[in-house]
Design a protein around this nucleic acid. Sequence first.
RNA 1: GCCGGCGUGGCUCAGUGGCAGAGCAGUCGAUUCGUAAUCGACAGGUCAUCGGUUCAAAUCCGAUCGCCGGCUCCA
Length: 636
Amino acid sequence: MVNITLKDGGRKEYPSGTTVLEMVQSFAPGLARKAVAARFNDELVDLTTPVTEDGSLEILTFDDDEGQEVYRHTSTHIMAQAVKRLFPDVRLAIGPAIDKGFYYDFDSAQTFTPEDFVRIEEEMRAIIKEDFPVVREEVSREEALQLFHSQDESYKVELIEALPEGEVISLYRQGEFVDLCAGPHLPSTGKVKAAKLTSLAGAYWRGDERNKMLQRIYGTSFPKKAMLDDYLHKIEEAKKRDHRRLGKELGLFIIAEEGPGFPFFLPRGMIIRNELEDLWRKEHVRAGYQEIKTPVILNRSLWERSGHWDHYRENMYFTTIDEDDYAIKPMNCPGGILVYKEHLHSYRELPIRLGELGLVHRHEKSGVLHGLMRVRAFTQDDAHLFMLPSQITSEIKGVIDMVDRFYNLFGFSYHVELSTRPENAMGSEEVWETATAALREALQEKGIDYVINEGDGAFYGPKIDFHLQDSLDRTWQCGTIQLDFLMPEKFDLTYVGEDGERHRPVMIHRVIYGSIERFIGILTEHFAGAFPTWLAPVQVRIIPIAERHHDYAFQIEKQLREAGLRAESDLRREKVGYKIRDGEVQRIPYLLITGDREVESSTVSVRRRNQGDLGAQSVEEFMAAIGEEISARRSG
RNA sequence: GCCGGCGUGGCUCAGUGGCAGAGCAGUCGAUUCGUAAUCGACAGGUCAUCGGUUCAAAUCCGAUCGCCGGCUCCA
């Protein structure tokens, strides 16, 4: 007999060898129907696993993240089986579950088309209907190699060879299909109810662009058709928040064919930009920063000295002036360093914090451009902090606080990554270790959760990255804090210490918004174009009901403008309903309806975006309320 | 850069070898209106560009440019 402890604390006893599924069926038949896998003694197991020892048991359903992963993992096996049936020559690479679905990478002489999706989905439905049991089998390395050799599955062979010695090698079989897989899986293919293939893409074997490009098919699956429909509907809704679409609809920016990756800001987009910059300047003065502006084009010798010439050249644009080589800056740091070097500094001056809204240009590969999120010219809200080694932790913490203050103001949630030494790094391992430890320490002292992003640091130092989400849940790095011991060395930066000797300062490179362009993209999606009043390109639109109210409307507009509000009047000869709809579609925070009643009583009828009619107020009352909302920079 | 898809008026899209279309936006006219679309008329396109196949190309083929989704890379 084995003793089983359930999640709710209940205890059960079963004959040894009873499967997990049999257990659930005995104490919760309803749960058994929903069950997809289980956790036994902190290990994920199949429902078909026979239990032969005491332990704690938790049943996983589609509602659990891990349950969902198992569900999608079996789904991708079903897809692979279908593809193998239809295209016997394909070789399988890998096929994991991902955040909202799954994919499988195939190597095939024939290229798949979206038309093939119909056939594959049909075959998947057949496999689901056949309801094959999914059976786990543990084999020796030799057996596994032999099996996949015999099937000419060279990628599987490569995967097995890469498995560490002593690792359990398991196979999962369903009908005629077998795959190398750690599991766990659903008990049978019939468990998958609604599956859909969503897209087709190329992907390099093992994610390395030197390797062969495989064909990746993405899909998703759910236990109910309604859930799939709901998911697809949500995707459609999310697309309406896409900043590229809203940017066009709201007249914020354009990207012309004449300048791929080089955005143009339109008058309305410039208002948002300028508001963000105003806030930035105010906060930076408060935090003890000074502002500088450094040139966009600087001589080659500077970039050779900074290391960009060796480590960043493929991302840079170049030009020639009077037969000398110059580069268009991809980063602001060398310029900031020249400012620091302009004169001798005492330890008493440190830390020196030099902020710069610097326009940088980077050559990005054509395939990566994406609206305002990934462009070839962008403005970094940069700053370079020069400090004593003893000031490192407090300066990093200061920047972390600032990032948090900014992001909270907009209501963003974000996640943090610590990026370590990349392959093409400058400097010794020791310097990198010291710098990375300093960043880690600051994060720990602030009690911030973070994930390690191995090898993603800048070439001159490790960094803390702050990531924000777009409307389709893709994440984009915005803020970053980079600790740099190497540039001060390269440029022979010094300060005079208490002892009268010259010492080496430490540098921090950091951005809060990251790139103003990307940040505006994220903001647009976050607010679905309904910017808080302080950021809204038009804050108030006055809607006179008939032509005889135009003078009154204009008088109010003038009053609002004089108070510094961004107000305009809609003088078109249209019905009120039409003008209101247009105002709502344009996401204008306040519409002021003015007709006979308002002229009579010297009021305005206030309509708040998404809330409707708030009733009549005096102009003074309205201005006081909106003024307060703006100066508090409320996001609500 | 790589893989796949796409490119038709300002915008969203229909048109799959035989006369380039619709809705919205725009202009003009009528309507002077009370909280999410008033009615009518007009105007607007070298069908991304270049080349090819064909009696005939938006439509088929090739190249180039751009866009979209991924991969790699990154703020």
